[in-house]
């Protein structure tokens, strides 16, 4: 294909011109030591990796459900990108959880063969989206919180978590920007969109409280410099949300209406059962299958 190739300049001239563009793909954990740091409780580390990994896995599932039905094709690409980023984070974290357990469970065993009560994600991740406004409002909250978390995780005493945090910061920065821009457009768009995104923010906000409750596993690991105490992220989160919400001409509901969230202890809504029913159906139907 050497004729009139306007895209020739876009690619590194590799030997095999049949392959798609793009080079320099890198293993995010290349060169990162995977030994469990001394003095760290393996069960705690595994539980913590499951928390962050399940958040990403379940949120990604909800985003996957938007591919082929977003308001515009460009947004289907964007939503798929965000879903892929989070899926990538989930795979690294579940793999790390398996290593920490030392039980030989890999990412797939953990994703496909656990029951709902064994999942450690926050309830925000599993909530279904009534419309696009709900999606972007939920994504804004999720990404703002997770970005603050990953940013601090990049300094974790566990080299693997630190690497995952550093990689994730770049990804989630974009997720937050995407969601924030949409919340502003909808809030300051038409009367219909304003009403819808205000309703979405109202619906999502009761789930915010859970994000900043520090679980005992987090407290113990934070004491060893491994984990991040979510309570410490609240001020940053509130500041970002206030800025976006103001630009969007929206209002935040009073913080009193907080629903107690227990996702970190495996207590979930029916929504997670639906998600896992869909996600795990095939893998469980052919348990000894090769894929």
């Amino acid at each position: 294909m050497s004729f009139d190739d306007a895209y020739g300049a876009l690619t590194d001239h590799d030997d095999d011109a049949r392959w798609a563009y793009g080079t320099g793909f890198a293993d995010p954990l290349a060169g990162v030591p995977t030994a469990i740091p001394d003095g760290v409780d393996r069960a705690d580390l595994a539980a913590y990796c499951l928390m962050l990994g399940d958040d990403a896995l379940i949120m990604s599932h909800r985003l996957q459900q938007w591919v082929t039905r977003a308001p515009e094709l460009e947004d289907e690409l964007a939503v798929a990108n965000i879903g892929l980023d989070l899926l990538g984070q989930a795979r690294l974290l579940l793999t790390r959880a398996g290593e920490a357990e030392g039980s030989g469970r890999d990412e797939d065993t953990l994703a496909y063969l656990r029951d709902p009560h064994e999942f450690r994600n926050v309830l925000l991740a599993e909530r279904s989206d009534d419309d696009f406004a709900h999606l972007v409002a939920r994504l804004l909250v999720f990404a703002t919180w997770r970005l603050a978390l990953l940013d601090r995780l990049a300094a974790s005493g566990d080299p693997v978590l630190a690497a995952i945090g550093a990689k994730g910061v770049k990804e989630v920065t974009y997720h937050r920007e995407y969601a924030a821009q949409w919340v502003v457009r909808l809030g300051d768009g038409t009367p219909v969109s304003h009403e819808r995104v205000q309703a979405a923010v109202d619906a999502v906000y009761p789930l915010v409280g859970e994000l900043f409750e520090t679980h005992e596993v987090e407290r113990r690991l934070a004491g060893r410099g491994i984990a991040v105490e979510p309570a410490s992220l609240r001020a940053e989160f509130d500041a970002v949300m206030a800025e976006v919400v103001a630009a969007a001409t929206l209002r935040l509901r009073a913080a009193t209406a907080v629903e107690p969230g227990r996702g970190r202890d495996g207590m979930h809504t029916a929504a997670l059962g639906e998600i896992l029913g869909e996600m795990q159906e095939l893998a469980r139907a052919i348990p000894d299958g090769a894929w």
Binding site: L10, T11, A20, Y21, G22, T23, G24, F25, E72, E74, L77, A78, N81, Y174, E177, Y178, Q181, R185
Partner: peptide
């Protein structure tokens, strides 16, 4: 591509035209 404003156009361009480290 189609976008409502320049910021959205940049986002969309990133998602559409640089999925494989092209830019």
């Amino acid at each position: 591509l189609r976008a409502a404003d320049h910021e959205m156009a940049l986002h969309h361009a990133r998602d559409l035209y640089t999925r494989r480290n092209e830019g």
